[in-house]
Amino acid sequence: MPAPLPDAELEQIELDLFLQALKRRHGHDFSEYAPASLTRRVRQLVHTHHCGSISALTARLLHEPDFVPLVIQGLSVPVSEMFRDPPVFRALRQHVLPVLASYPQITIWQAGCAHGQEVYSLAILLEEAGLYERSHIFATDFNADALQRAQEGIYPARDAQLWSRNYLLAGGGQSLASYYSARYDFIKLNQRLRRHITFANHNLVTDKVFCEAHLVLCRNVLIYFSNPLQNRTLALFRDSLVRGGHLCLGMRESLDFAPTAGDFTAVDAALRLYRRNSQPALEEHDGTA
């Protein structure tokens, strides 16, 4: 009789099988996500849905089509704020908007828009700078449910206080309340803010370049990816940007160690705001692009 496996090894097998089932049955590939957070979320799913084990979760995933969106929701990160990290939005206002103003048409890609808090923050920045009428923002996510929520633009009223403070710290010119209406326990953003936003399904793991952008904003998404997937995603951002286009990452993310580092110059390194170089880097790319 074979010896019993240690729990950790058993769990690893269950996790591998779960990820395979998700990929082969539903086409969602999480195999290149950084394992620590992914494992935590899968355990959380087991707990939330009273499955008892990852194997039981896998069985439901395979046999209950209605269960898939719940799993996808549990595996993606919809947590954000409007004007999160206000200094970043202040820097966008000061350093990036004047450059955008020099283009007749402005294209922006926000990758991983989740529930839309940041894309609406961007829309407000552009509106206040008088640039919104000639702007187009692509807000993408792989999570269809999150995209739906993002389009609705309805958020818990309890968040509004922090977001208003963020907005003012980011150099906002009015009051955030002028952009939403409050009803009961919710706020609904002014639908006019949506008029130049296209919400679309795009998966950074599998999908390719689809636009030529002047600004790519992707914050707190790369931290969930393994090194190779991070590097590939950064190359995708580079190839989606015009020369001289800006890239804005999360405050604790960095492209310092990525093969694409030589293609960018820091505008504000502490805020993770970069600009694609006008000339190709001197060194050869490593071919991941």
């Binding site: 394992p35 620590a36 957070s37 935590r40 990160v77 947590v79 931290i223 405050m251 604790r252």
Partner: peptide
């Protein structure tokens, strides 16, 4: 760091998350 969960990968490298 403030605002992020700190985790370890099995190869003893750090990972961060902004999960709930």
């Amino acid at each position: 760091p403030g605002g992020y969960h700190l985790l370890l990968e099995h190869d003893r490298h750090f990972a961060l998350s902004v999960d709930e």
